[in-house]
């Protein structure tokens, strides 16, 4: 099968050359046309970057790098510091990963190593379903179901059990960093699970056989598989990070939207994406809008880098395996 696919690739390359040698103008035109559309994706990305930068140029010129360190966000006094949002984005994403990564890896291992045949597809379908639920509905659920539960049960319990930590101090609002982190965790679960599962399934079976034949138990075999897939699993987690950083609606609805830095996870916070969602339409003067677009530019650049790194890591595993299988 794989050797067949390889042959196909070679042949389509050959065929492309063959058609060029015939110089049939219609074929050349067709090829160029589709190439234009493919290139337009690349152009689009660059165009987006330039547009955002141009529309934030006054803010960029005025605040410089200090924008990132400024702690005060007060549009009334024309003070724009991004630090509370940067902090909120980093902490909420980290919290989300702390919750989601162990769960996702557990599910991915279950699906690729342990699940009985019939189960595998059903469970994978249900986990994918989680990915199909729109962000705004997670937000709705967060406001009316999750945050009351946090306020009435979970946060008081955390405060009484781990209250000595600065993370769990202060009044339990329900709405706040913890709610944001939990919602994000649920939202990035499916992508981390799906990519991890792909990566684990790409590990050649010969590795599992090698471990088993040496007297390894199932779990010990799984550890061999995990070691083999390490780069790809890291990629899956970083892909999840990219999603968590850019996620907007659900977080906006539950994180409390207060531009302050607080150690307690119970306190309201704010992320880059949610401040844009909340204040963009209310931004009353040019510099305010530009400051928000500059936040967008920062978010865009960070997610670009994060996604690029993740993609390369995932490819490094799945492609390498494909090559090995071809030999």
């Amino acid at each position: 099968m794989s050797s067949l696919a390889l042959r196909d690739n070679e042949q389509s390359g050959l065929m492309a050359r063959w058609s060029r040698s015939r110089h049939r103008w219609s074929d050349v035109l067709f090829r160029r046309l589709t190439a234009c559309f493919a290139l337009s994706i690349l152009i689009l990305l660059v165009w987006m970057l330039i547009t955002l930068a141009l529309n934030a140029r006054q803010a960029l010129a005025r605040f410089g790098w200090g924008f990132l360190w400024g702690r005060t966000w007060d549009p009334v006094r024309e003070q724009f510091g991004a630090l509370p949002f940067v902090y909120g984005t980093i902490v909420s994403s980290t919290l989300a990963l702390c919750i989601a990564v162990p769960l996702s890896l557990g599910v991915a291992i279950f699906l690729s190593e342990h699940a009985p045949r019939g189960w595998e597809n059903v469970v994978a379908f249900l986990v994918d379903t989680l990915a199909a639920i729109p962000s705004v509905i997670y937000g709705l659920w967060g406001i009316f179901i999750l945050s009351p539960a946090l306020r009435n049960y979970i946060e008081p319990w955390l405060a009484s059990t781990f209250g000595f930590l600065p993370l769990f101090q202060g009044p339990p609002y329900g709405i706040g960093m913890l709610a944001g982190g939990i919602i994000l965790a649920i939202m990035v679960l499916p992508i981390i699970t799906a990519v991890s599962r792909d990566v684990l399934q790409a590990v050649p079976n010969t590795q599992r056989e090698a471990a088993l034949s040496l007297g390894a138990t199932r779990w010990e075999t799984t550890r061999v598989v995990l070691a083999h897939a390490r780069a790809g699993l890291t990629g899956a987690v970083i892909l999840g990070l990219g999603r968590a950083i850019g996620e907007t609606m659900a977080v906006t609805m539950v994180i409390g939207n207060r531009p302050e830095i607080s150690y307690s996870l119970f306190d309201p916070s704010y992320t880059i994406a949610s401040v844009i969602a909340n204040e963009f339409n209310e931004a009353t003067y040019e510099l305010y809008v530009q400051a928000l677009i500059e936040l967008g530019l920062i978010l865009f650049l960070v997610t670009l880098i994060v996604n690029a790194v993740a993609r390369l890591l995932v490819w490094s595993v799945t492609r390498r395996t494909r090559e090995v299988q071809r030999v």
Partner: peptide
């Protein structure tokens, strides 16, 4: 490379696309 860029574009936060369409 375009395949790679396409995957990255698919992971761009949708709010960024909103700002882009706005401008």
């Amino acid at each position: 490379f375009i395949e790679f860029v396409t995957d990255i574009l698919a992971g761009t936060p949708s709010i960024i696309v909103g700002i882009f369409a706005y401008t």
